[in-house]
Deep mutational scan, measured.
Amino acid sequence: TTVVVGNKKYTFDNPEAAEKFAKKVAKKLGATVHKTNGTFKVK
């Protein structure tokens, strides 16, 4: 599962961990999490 934050990509074996990370980053940046085909995008 990939999490994309700006131009950085983070890969997780565990989708739950990926989602948690994405939400944490989004909260910090005041952004939102978008899920597309198993990829979480923070923007």
Rank of each mutant, 00 (worst) to 15 (best):
V5E: 01
K24V: 10
F12Y: 04
K9P: 05
H34Y: 11
K23P: 00
N7G: 07
A31G: 15
K24H: 12
K9G: 06
K9H: 11
E19I: 07
A18D: 00
V33E: 02
K23G: 07
G38M: 04
T36S: 11
P15W: 08
K9N: 08
V4C: 11
K27W: 07
V33W: 06
A17V: 11
V3R: 00
E16F: 11
D13I: 11
F40A: 05
P15S: 10
K27H: 10
T36L: 10
K27G: 07
V25H: 03
T39N: 15
E19N: 05
A22N: 00
V25N: 02
K20W: 11
G38P: 04
T36K: 07
T11V: 13
N37T: 04
N37S: 05
V4F: 13
A17F: 09
K35W: 14
N37E: 13
N14T: 10
K20M: 13
K8C: 15
K8H: 10
G30N: 09
V3G: 00
T2G: 05
K24C: 14
E16I: 14
A31R: 04
H34N: 06
T11W: 14
A26V: 02
F12D: 00
G38C: 06
E16V: 12
F21R: 01
T1A: 13
V25I: 13
N7K: 12
Y10T: 03
E19Q: 06
N37I: 04
T2D: 10
F21L: 03
G38A: 05
G30R: 05
K8E: 07
K20R: 14
K43Q: 14
G30T: 03
K27F: 07
N14Y: 07
G38R: 05
V25T: 06
F21Q: 01
K23L: 13
N14W: 07
F40N: 05
Y10G: 01
D13M: 11
V4M: 11
A18H: 00
V25S: 03
K24D: 11
K20E: 11
A22C: 02
K28P: 03
P15R: 08
V5R: 01
N37Q: 06
K9E: 09
K8R: 13
V33H: 02
V25F: 04
T2Y: 14
T1F: 13
G6W: 08
E19Y: 13
K8L: 09
K43T: 15
F40V: 12
A26R: 01
G30I: 03
T36W: 07
V33I: 08
N7I: 10
V42F: 03
N7P: 07
L29A: 04
T11K: 14
V42R: 00
G6E: 04
V3A: 02
K35E: 08
T11P: 07
K28S: 09
K43R: 10
G38F: 04
N37Y: 03
A26N: 00
D13G: 11
E19R: 06
K43S: 14
K20F: 09
K43M: 15
K27M: 09
A26H: 01
V4L: 13
F21M: 03
K23C: 12
G38S: 05
L29S: 04
L29C: 05
V5W: 04
F40W: 14
T2P: 06
G30E: 04
T39Y: 15
L29I: 14
F12E: 00
K43H: 12
V3E: 00
V4D: 05
V42E: 04
N7Q: 11
K35H: 09
K23S: 08
V33P: 02
K27E: 10
F40K: 04
A26I: 02
V3T: 02
K8Q: 09
K9R: 13
Y10F: 12
T1Y: 13
K35R: 09
D13N: 10
A31W: 15
F40S: 05
V3L: 02
T11F: 14
T1R: 06
T11M: 14
D13Y: 09
K27Y: 08
E19W: 13
P15D: 08
K9A: 10
A18L: 01
K28V: 09
V25C: 08
G6Y: 12
K41R: 14
K8I: 08
G6H: 08
N7S: 12
K27N: 08
K43A: 15
N37M: 04
T39F: 14
P15L: 10
K23N: 15
F12C: 04
T36A: 09
F12R: 00
H34K: 08
V4P: 00
K27R: 09
N7D: 07
G6P: 01
E19A: 06
K8T: 08
K9S: 11
A17K: 12
F12V: 01
K28W: 09
T1W: 15
T1H: 09
G30Q: 05
K41N: 14
K24I: 13
A26L: 01
V3W: 00
K23A: 08
T2Q: 10
G30M: 05
T11S: 09
T32Q: 10
A31L: 14
E19V: 06
V33R: 01
K35G: 05
A17E: 10
G38D: 07
N37C: 08
T1N: 09
K28H: 12
N7E: 09
K43Y: 15
T36V: 15
E19M: 08
V4W: 13
Y10V: 04
G38E: 05
E16L: 12
A26T: 02
T32Y: 06
K24E: 12
K20V: 09
K28Y: 11
F12P: 00
K24A: 14
L29T: 05
T39E: 15
T2F: 13
N37H: 05
A31T: 08
A17G: 06
V5F: 05
E19S: 06
T36N: 07
K24S: 12
V42Y: 01
K43V: 15
D13P: 13
V42M: 03
N14H: 08
G38H: 06
T39C: 14
A26K: 01
D13L: 10
F40H: 07
N7A: 10
E19C: 09
F40T: 06
Y10W: 14
V3P: 00
V5G: 00
K28R: 12
